[in-house]
Simulated assay, not measured.
Amino acid sequence: MSDQKTSGRQGGTPGAFSRWMQHRMNARMNRKVRRGKGTFMGMDVLILNTVGSRTGEPRQTPVAWFADDGDGRLVVASGGGSQNPDWFVNLMANADKATIELPGYEAAPITPHRLEGAERDAAWQRIATAQPRIAKYQSKSDREYPVVRLTPR
């Protein structure tokens, strides 16, 4: 799920096979969400629709989400490796074009807001409590994973 950069190649970028496999897995999860079944490994999943920052092409990425206060949703840009995942880069570059699809629902426009400081810390605590494996994953990384609040527009 998501854009994980976990190949054994130098530079931390995935090889052709890893990219092909990720594309297949994402497409399968997207079909599942659109059929109204949005969970993976015990986490709720939505489809994040973005526009490629370099290509301008539409992108659809299944992403785990966590409840936020009110009607927002929290997502974590983990993605493995030393760089942020492609979906995060695309989301921040073209925030005004982003939408999400919740299981069984049509795409709805959202506004992303990258959380910082105490706001991020509080959100991270909720996420790590809900899914301790994400905190463990973070502890093995040399970068702090961005946390983004997605709110309806």
Rank of each mutant, 00 (worst) to 15 (best):
D3A: 09
D3N: 15
D3Y: 09
Q4W: 13
R9S: 10
Q10G: 01
Q10P: 03
G11Q: 07
G15W: 02
A16D: 13
R19G: 00
M21F: 12
M21H: 10
M21P: 00
Q22G: 15
H23L: 04
R24L: 13
M25Y: 08
R28G: 14
N30P: 00
R31N: 05
R34A: 06
R35Y: 00
R35C: 02
K37P: 00
K37C: 00
K37T: 03
G38N: 04
T39Q: 13
F40R: 05
M41S: 11
M41K: 10
M41A: 14
L46C: 13
L46N: 01
N49K: 15
N49S: 15
T50C: 08
T50Q: 05
T50V: 08
V51Y: 03
S53K: 14
R54N: 12
G56R: 12
G56F: 08
E57L: 14
P58A: 12
Q60G: 01
T61F: 09
A64V: 04
A64R: 00
A64K: 01
F66I: 04
D68G: 11
D69P: 02
G70K: 10
D71H: 11
G72E: 05
R73A: 14
R73Q: 11
L74R: 03
L74Y: 14
V75H: 01
V76M: 11
A77H: 06
G81E: 06
P85V: 08
P85F: 08
P85R: 09
W87V: 02
F88P: 00
V89C: 01
L91K: 04
N94H: 15
N94D: 03
A95C: 02
A95E: 08
A95F: 03
D96T: 10
K97E: 06
I100R: 01
L102C: 11
L102G: 01
P103S: 09
E106M: 04
A108Q: 14
A108T: 14
I110Y: 02
H113V: 13
H113L: 12
H113A: 14
G117C: 10
A118C: 01
A118S: 13
E119K: 13
D121G: 08
W124S: 04
I127P: 05
T129G: 10
T129A: 15
Q131M: 14
R133K: 13
I134M: 14
I134F: 14
Y137A: 10
D142P: 07
R143L: 06
R143I: 11
E144H: 08
Y145W: 11
V147Y: 04
V147R: 08
R149G: 01
L150K: 11
T151C: 07
